[in-house]
């Protein structure tokens, strides 16, 4: 198998891969949740994108799954791969055992088979956290841009890199029980705007969003989110930052009441 040894070579003995895939089509009254099994010969650099398309085109044209960019940037193809949320497009079969189980991400509404509705979850999260810049002034077409240090731009970009694939949400015990828990992606989004000086919201403004059971203090700290994040976002740092900011805001607002 061609692997990460720096040279592209063809394998001499391809493995036979067995895929066990969750099936359910909610639009079909005849359909009931079950799994189907498919076998494929492994090819060099085979990803789950390649494998699933082969399965659909060769064996089962009704199989539902989502891919768009197939380069790990659009976030469409999150699914449970051998029990772990992952982006299917960048998962090389060579990194998996011969038996591969594929299930849809939990915590999201099922569209069919491996396809889930992440769009609705993320839109609601964005609305609830008002995930846009709350700016000081309307845009002035004639003005030069507000200055920012490159270090700060890099720091914001670091949090901005989330691709909303939903892997962190699916891996989160709390998010699986509470639809409204912000989970890794939501908390990271909040931190991204908190960090951005172009957003005028104060820590106190953020308090209600971040401090409750559905914010950072609802997190049980198991940190599966950080383990599964395909973009390796520094979620541990994000939560520490949010807790620090939130506690600070709390003390400030208590002090305000006293005076």
């Amino acid at each position: 198998m061609a692997r990460r040894d720096g040279v592209i070579t063809l394998s001499t003995e391809p493995r036979k891969l067995t895929f066990e895939i969750f099936r359910y089509n909610p639009e079909d009254p005849q359909s009931a949740p079950h799994t189907d099994t498919f076998e494929l010969d492994e090819t060099p650099f085979m990803t789950l994108y390649i494998a699933l398309n082969q399965i659909r085109e060769t064996f089962d044209p009704g199989l539902q799954f989502d891919f768009a960019c197939r380069s790990a940037i659009c976030g469409s193809c999150g699914m449970m791969v051998n029990g772990r949320p992952a982006l299917a497009c960048r998962t090389l079969t060579g990194d998996l055992p011969e038996n591969i189980q594929l299930y849809p991400l939990p915590a999201f509404k099922l569209v069919g088979d491996l396809s889930v509705d992440t769009g609705t979850w993320f839109r609601e999260m964005s609305e609830r956290t008002e995930a846009w810049i709350h700016e000081r002034q309307p845009f002035d077409e004639g003005a030069t841009e507000e200055r920012m240090s490159d270090e700060l731009a890099d720091a914001i970009y670091e949090n901005d890199r989330c691709i909303e694939c939903g892997c962190c949400v699916a891996s989160c015990g709390v998010a699986n029980l509470d639809d409204a828990f912000l989970a890794g992606a939501g908390l990271n989004r909040v931190a991204r705007f908190m960090l951005d000086p172009r957003d005028t919201r104060s820590d106190a403004d953020w308090f209600d969003i971040v401090a409750g059971e559905q914010g950072v203090f609802g997190c049980l700290g198991m940190m599966a989110c950080a383990d599964v994040c395909p973009k390796e976002l520094p979620l541990l740092d994000v939560y520490a930052y949010l807790r620090r900011k939130t506690l600070g805001a709390r003390f400030v607002s208590e002090d305000d009441k006293k005076t």
């Binding site: 810049i133 200055r147 920012m148 490159d150 914001i156 970009y157 705007f193």
Partner: peptide, 14 residues
């Protein structure tokens, strides 16, 4: 520049 206003973290001059 409008995108900067919308929040794009453009890489900046050092």
């Amino acid at each position: 520049r409008e995108l900067a206003h919308y929040g794009v973290p453009w890489t900046r001059v050092k």
